[in-house]
Design a protein around this nucleic acid. Sequence first.
DNA 1: TTACTTTCTTGTCATATGACAAGATAATTC
DNA 2: GAATTATCTTGTCATATGACAAGAAAGTAA
Lengths: 187, 187
Amino acid sequence: MNELKAFFKKYIPLADTENFVRAFDVAQKLKKREFLLKPAQNCAYLAFVKKGTFRVFFYDKEGTEITVWFSFEGMMIGDLLALFQNSKAIFYVQAIEDSEISILPKNKLEELYLKNPEYLQFGRKYAEYVSVNVMKRMLSFQTKSAEERYIELLTNPNYMQRIPLKYLASYLGVTDSSLSRIRKKIS
Amino acid sequence: MNELKAFFKKYIPLADTENFVRAFDVAQKLKKREFLLKPAQNCAYLAFVKKGTFRVFFYDKEGTEITVWFSFEGMMIGDLLALFQNSKAIFYVQAIEDSEISILPKNKLEELYLKNPEYLQFGRKYAEYVSVNVMKRMLSFQTKSAEERYIELLTNPNYMQRIPLKYLASYLGVTDSSLSRIRKKIS
DNA sequence: TTACTTTCTTGTCATATGACAAGATAATTC
DNA sequence: GAATTATCTTGTCATATGACAAGAAAGTAA
């Protein structure tokens, strides 16, 4: 549970994380390519990545896979769009490597809220944390070229060493041939 | 206060909005082009637009104005990136027309939290609401062309009739000459 | 009105990217 | 190891967009 405590300490400071962290289910394993979630499924939970890598993606109207988000160990993963809208899952969530997660079911979370209103802060802080991340990513789309966005990722070995180019390309908003050319140009 | 109640009813259902809405300060007027906020200022509040139009913008490294967001009457406005990060303002918030706002100061909000833990849900629901909006805008950048994004806006007369092309252009992530050409092509 | 400022359009040229296709390279499975 | 699949690179061509500049149109103020 130490990784989880570290996550909260870093991103979502709470007065008492101990009990909160216990609300997560025991770890669960997923093989490479296995799905944690598919569209239309019930997604009333958040998952914490203990090991491995996940991606969130969907198919656009042309049938092309669009990767929206990645999560590496120490981060949360889920269909946040659905979670925050209280809808069924919209995206696929898939393990890119053999992975291990702990799940925090929504109903357990609500039990905690009743026990201790201080935990109500979790929901707010987490949503604010997500907002900030998505805003930054949106701004990078609005103001930077694919090349600049790629260069930003270069500093993070997780993206460079663990994510296949084709996933990275759609995450950056370009085709894989374009990203391949960008790569060539930079090196 | 009816517009405010309508906002909460529509976007952030709370058991009791009455007292919550009273926490907003009395209306305040801003002339066209006037600033509600500038970078580095204290932004410990959220504003509700009773009348008029606002935009959130900044200058990129080339010195070009980039408009990040618009708000029309019935919507909230503020430097949410700063608000959620507890930092000083990062963006300019400017009235595009003569406008009227009501401010909800953060400290008043916190008083309410103590009075009634139910209000703690506001912070979460608002941040989730913002997340969803920003995610959708991010997805539209990731998967759509400037032309498609512009076509989406066509259905909303607020954007078409009240926002100068040059603001719209940077909001869509293109130059104003490009947007002018897109417009021509469509008509 | 007249002058001035702001906003929008258009022209030219260079470049980035997409679509599509063919191969090359690497990884996985049997 | 061989076969198969997955991943990445490269070529060609068409198009969208940016940079820059000039001018038209609309709005604002004296």
